[in-house]
Amino acid sequence: MSDLVAIVYPSEAKAEEVRQRLLKLQKEYLITISDAVIAVKTESGGIKLNQLVNTTAMGAMTGSFWGLLIGVIFLNPILGVAIGAASGALGGALSDFGIDDAFMKQLAGSLHTGNAALFVLIKNMTADKVLKEIKDAGGTVLKTSLDDAKEQALRDALASAAAERPAA
């Protein structure tokens, strides 16, 4: 079962920095991430989602391949690529995996303008090593599905970074 963690940061750049740290930890097999999305509240009040995987582009790419293959069979590869790319892009835009977009937009609605929330769907992790790597970035826990002890450990680690920052 996966756990959801949503942490608020003062900027999109800070949230992206933490996401890159988590992806680095994934390469070290300390965490397994299903999805990692950054939600930013824009000046106009809207919510922009910065997905880890662009499903529209992936759909267009795979659609182009299959369209080319079918186009070669019917002796019109260019038309096949065009139709395949268009249908793949449409399918990719309509598909959603990982964290539900509507759920993220609803939670991110409470952010202040310019703030960003990092939503991470975690399959498994070595909690103490992951916390050690991200705690200095600070942040505020918005929502988690962690058990009470793990959530409190996360809140304490992030709060300790905030407490150390003014003293430095």
Results as ranks from 00 to 15, higher is better:
Ile38Ala: 07
Ser95Gln: 08
Gly88Arg: 02
Leu79Arg: 02
Leu111Glu: 06
Ala36Met: 09
Met104Trp: 06
Ala85His: 07
Asn124Leu: 03
Leu94Trp: 04
Thr32Leu: 15
Met61Cys: 14
Asn115Pro: 05
Tyr9Val: 01
Gly91Gln: 01
Gly45Ala: 01
Ser44Thr: 14
Thr42His: 09
Lys27Tyr: 01
Tyr29Ala: 15
Glu151His: 08
Leu146Met: 13
Leu142Ser: 02
Arg155Phe: 04
Ile33Glu: 05
Ser2Glu: 10
Ala157Gln: 07
Gly88Gln: 04
Gly67Pro: 06
Lys41Pro: 04
Ser2Pro: 13
Thr42Ala: 13
Asn50Lys: 14
Ala13Thr: 11
Leu131Trp: 11
Leu111Val: 05
Gly67Met: 10
Leu121Gln: 12
Lys135Ala: 07
Lys132Pro: 01
Thr113Glu: 15
Leu22Gln: 00
Thr62Asn: 12
Met61His: 11
Thr140Arg: 05
Asn76Lys: 07
Met125Tyr: 09
Lys105Cys: 05
Tyr29Lys: 13
Lys132His: 09
Ser95Leu: 03
Ile99Asn: 04
Gln20Arg: 15
Lys24Tyr: 11
Val120Asp: 03
Thr56Gly: 04
Leu121Arg: 14
Glu17Val: 03
Tyr9Cys: 01
Thr42Ile: 08
Gly91Thr: 13
Ile99Glu: 00
Thr56Pro: 03
Ala86Trp: 12
Ala153Tyr: 03
Gly63Ile: 00
Phe119Glu: 03
Leu146Asn: 00
Phe97Ser: 02
Thr126Cys: 05
Leu90Glu: 00
Ala117Tyr: 09
Ala82Met: 12
Arg155Ala: 15
Glu133Asn: 12
Gly63Thr: 05
Met125Ser: 01
Asn54Thr: 04
Ala153Ser: 14
Ala36Pro: 01
Ile99Phe: 03
Val18Gln: 02
Ala153Ile: 02
Ala149Phe: 11
Glu133Gln: 12
Asn76Pro: 00
